[in-house]
């Protein structure tokens, strides 16, 4: 038996939930390089897809004539305005539903009925109610943001550990104090992850909202580029939207790190 004393072999390789930091950048660079190559050699005709450097040129010319900031500014105003409005209303309703039995009983079925409505379909109605100016655009975004915020806030409040609330009651805290000191911070992780969803919804809806009655804004720019078959500008606009989305999620990441340091 002496010759059969094998050393134990390592068999726990792989399946590690880790990521390599450089990998996504490399993939990005490779994809863009392949894209540029395909465009330059004519494999990908510019009629169907602009090349990366054409997209960069389109972005550059936007930057040079100053329209870039006009478009971003107009869109940001609508996104931020609509998002703030929708989030504030959503937080109020979500909290009410999480705390009061009556609000929950009424709110849950109403939200369930209205949530799935595609807000874009309501745009013509908003135009009748609010005109073709800014209010209808902000209302579209606000409504799109409102429902997911209600749902995420409600479930975040609902998930605040009951024992913390009972503890606060046992020390004689008033209801407003419990909401402010226990429920709000306890629901904050859920609310913030709800913000991640609602901010990307706001970004999607700004394109729809800018279909009507405006010439400025990234959404209007993308739509006009589509109508004009200016594919380089179209892709440039899409790149801008994606950068805007990345910026927003980066900011939310910072907010999470600051507000949820205790986790």
């Amino acid at each position: 038996m002496s010759e059969t004393q094998p050393t134990v072999t390592f068999r726990g390789r792989g399946f590690v939930p880790a990521t390599k930091r450089w990998a996504p950048w490399l993939a990005f660079v490779l994809i863009i390089a392949a894209w540029e190559f395909a465009s330059d050699t004519g494999l990908l005709p510019s009629l169907f897809m602009p090349s990366p450097h054409e997209v960069l040129l389109a972005l550059y010319s936007l930057l040079v004539d100053g329209k870039l900031f006009v478009h971003i500014g107009a869109s940001l105003q609508r996104i931020v305005g609509g998002w703030l409005l929708g989030s504030f209303a959503g937080l109020c309703f979500g909290f009410a539903m999480g705390i009061f039995v009556l609000a929950r009983s009424v709110g849950l079925p109403v939200v369930a009925a209205l949530f799935p409505i595609p807000k874009i379909a309501l745009l013509p109605l908003f135009i009748l109610w609010f005109g073709i100016g800014e209010p209808s655009k902000i209302a579209t975004i606000a409504l799109g943001v409102f429902f997911p915020t209600v749902v995420s806030t409600y479930s975040a409040v609902d998930n605040v550990p009951r024992n913390l609330i009972r503890m606060a009651q046992s020390f004689g805290l008033s209801t407003p104090a419990i909401v402010w000191k226990v429920i709000l911070p306890g629901a904050m992780p859920g609310i913030l992850s709800g913000f991640r969803i609602s901010s990307s919804i706001a970004l999607i809806l700004v394109v729809a909202a800018e279909m009507i009655g405006t010439q400025v804004g990234i959404g209007a720019f993308v739509l006009a580029a589509g109508n004009l078959m200016q594919t380089d500008q179209l892709v440039a606009g899409v790149v801008l939207l994606s950068l805007l989305g990345l910026t927003i999620s980066w900011l939310l990441g910072i907010a999470e790190k600051t507000l949820l340091r205790w986790r």
Binding site: N163, L164, M167, S170, V182, P185, M188, L260, W262, R263
Partner: peptide, 13 residues
């Protein structure tokens, strides 16, 4: 009348 809880019931934040 003041409680001490089994699961401590501390506010984590």
């Amino acid at each position: 009348l003041t409680f001490v809880f089994q699961d401590f019931a501390l506010l984590p934040w």
